[in-house]
Design a binder for these strands. Structure first.
Length: 210
DNA sequence: CTTCAGATTATCT
DNA sequence: GATAATCTGAAGT
């Protein structure tokens, strides 16, 4: 008897495609506060609430796709709603693709299921969700990986400069949930990121839609 | 083929 | 606050 296998999607659903087929900037803002559900090959469910993301857009020198398609970034050209995972310094970082050549980097999440340790920081988040380069290019679809709507009201979000890049730092393409203790700290591996006393002047607050 | 910088993090002072 | 770890992808010669 062949072992039971879960169905494997070859493309995102139409709804998923529609959600992601926009600019990374817009998707990033809408993604904040949504839940990300990962189902491991053995069926284990791991879910986080996204509290920090970054948009990588067209004409953006920090975007891996800035100079067109390469073997490394080919997943960013598969169409909206795919996973783009790259590796840096022996660490994996996961993105969700939006429009062609654009993507949203998943930087931090609030753990919603037992077993998740510290999904704060892109490397830790990808690790906790067990997303590696082997998952690069996979469509965002069940059961593998799904984005679920926000629960309750929209969070108060902040926008500010992105982290860890040397070019394109002037644009406020980093989105975070104000007050979340799971937001990553710019230059520290702390478990409990120090809360900035007050958002800097470069940060812009955005009220919940209501 | 060689060089080099990098969307990070753990660990040390 | 500063730096090593560790190695791939991409650009340069």
């Amino acid at each position: 008897m062949a072992p039971e296998r879960r169905p494997r999607a070859f493309a995102p659903s139409p709804l998923t495609r529609a959600f992601f087929d926009r600019s990374a900037l817009q998707v990033a803002g809408d993604l904040l506060g949504c839940r990300l559900r990962r189902v491991l090959p053995d069926g284990t469910v791991r879910m986080v609430r996204l509290v920090e993301v970054e948009a990588y857009v067209r004409g953006d020198p920090a975007n891996h796709a800035f100079r067109g398609m390469t073997p490394r970034n080919r997943s960013m050209f598969l169409g909206p709603g795919h996973l783009y995972v790259y590796r840096i310094h022996q660490v994996h970082c996961a993105n969700l693709t939006t429009r062609r050549g654009e993507a949203v980097l998943l930087r931090a999440g609030e753990p919603l299921t037992p077993g998740l340790k510290n999904p704060s920081g892109p490397g830790r988040l990808a690790r906790e969700l067990e997303l590696t380069r082997a998952d690069d290019g996979r469509p965002l679809a069940r059961p593998f990986l799904s984005v679920l709507p926000r629960e309750g009201p929209s969070p108060v979000s902040l926008r500010g400069p992105r982290i860890g890049i040397s070019r394109g730092t002037e644009r406020p393409l980093r989105f975070l949930v104000e007050g979340s203790p799971w937001v990553s700290a710019p230059r520290s591996g702390r478990k409990a990121p120090r809360r900035r006393s007050t958002p800097g002047p470069s940060f812009r607050s955005r009220r919940p839609r209501g």
